[in-house]
């Protein structure tokens, strides 16, 4: 339904083969200990657009980002990245994943965005340093380059990570709960940065929880609750009916869940439970 609409809306950018830089999921299943966290999800993220991923806790949103960036292997199906190299997909993890007390200066962290040209051994160029200073200025931290990161507030640290994303200059940018625990002003300024990425034609995929934020800033939405509930224009996805279905996702961990046979053809009238969720 809304999924088809999405394909239609971008038919002119998206001919039969996925264009370079388009992220597509092909019947993707991701599991922890055989239990699916993302279950048979297919679709394509609109290239050069902002897509929000929303859904209840445990819906597989962060796991999906990890699979796109290559931190997790697909158990079934695949993620297609349209020929992008790893460094062309930038990834902002949840803050807890980073050792914030590490004795690094702000500009060192920002310069990590230059990793694909400096790498393990290479020189950090003068132009990269200059771009790092510019990136810091753009996130409102001009002059913070020499400060140690362990003296920054959560909001300032998130601005530093956005500066790193700026330096990475990637075609696709994945953000995992980028505005959680940030104040209104920081959120607004970083959202403005995300909007500028859209104007520059970058694809942005962000895991978010604030529906109002999604409605006003993200034209596309993937509503995920292990399964894909809806994917397409935000207005058609974030309906009360869809949200109710997403929130009805079973929270309990079924230790005795049977093996999933959904992809085996020909399909008999399926005796297993989850095929009925559509």
């Amino acid at each position: 339904m809304s999924h088809a609409h999405h394909h239609h809306a971008h038919a002119q950018h998206a001919p039969a083969a996925a264009p370079r830089g388009a992220i597509a999921l092909r019947n993707l299943t991701l599991t922890y200990h055989r239990h699916p966290v993302v279950h048979h999800v297919s679709g394509q993220f609109a290239p050069g657009e902002l897509t929000a991923i929303v859904g209840p806790n445990g819906a597989g949103k962060s796991t999906l980002l990890k699979a796109i960036v290559g931190l997790m292997q697909a158990n079934h199906g695949s993620v297609e990245t349209g020929g992008l190299k790893p460094h062309e997909i930038a990834y902002l993890p949840q803050q807890a994943a980073i050792a914030r007390d590490f004795p690094l200066a702000v500009q060192d962290v920002v310069l990590l965005g230059d990793w694909h040209s400096s790498g393990w051994f290479g020189r950090v160029s003068r132009s990269a340093r200059q771009r790092a200073d510019e990136a810091l200025a753009r996130v409102g931290l001009a002059g913070f380059g020499k400060r140690p990161v362990d003296e920054l507030s959560a909001g300032q640290f998130q601005r530093v990570l956005f500066a790193r994303l700026l330096l990475q200059d990637a075609r696709v940018i994945l953000l995992d709960e980028p505005f959680t625990a940030l104040d209104a002003r920081t959120t607004a300024e970083l959202l403005e940065l995300v909007a500028s990425w859209r104007r520059e034609g970058r694809t942005v995929i962000a895991v978010l929880h604030d529906y109002e934020q999604v409605r006003s800033h993200f034209p596309h939405t993937l509503l995920l609750a292990k399964e894909c509930i809806a994917w397409g224009d935000t207005a058609t996805v974030l309906t009360q009916a869809n949200l109710n279905r997403a929130n009805g996702m079973p929270q309990s961990w079924d230790e005795q869940a049977p093996v999933c046979h959904r992809d085996e053809t020909p399909l008999p009238t399926p005796p297993h439970d989850h095929a009925h969720s559509h």
Partner: peptide, 10 residues
């Protein structure tokens, strides 16, 4: 500092 970053950059 950020092992996932390094991993995500290949």
């Amino acid at each position: 500092f950020d092992p996932e970053f390094l991993q995500s950059m290949g």
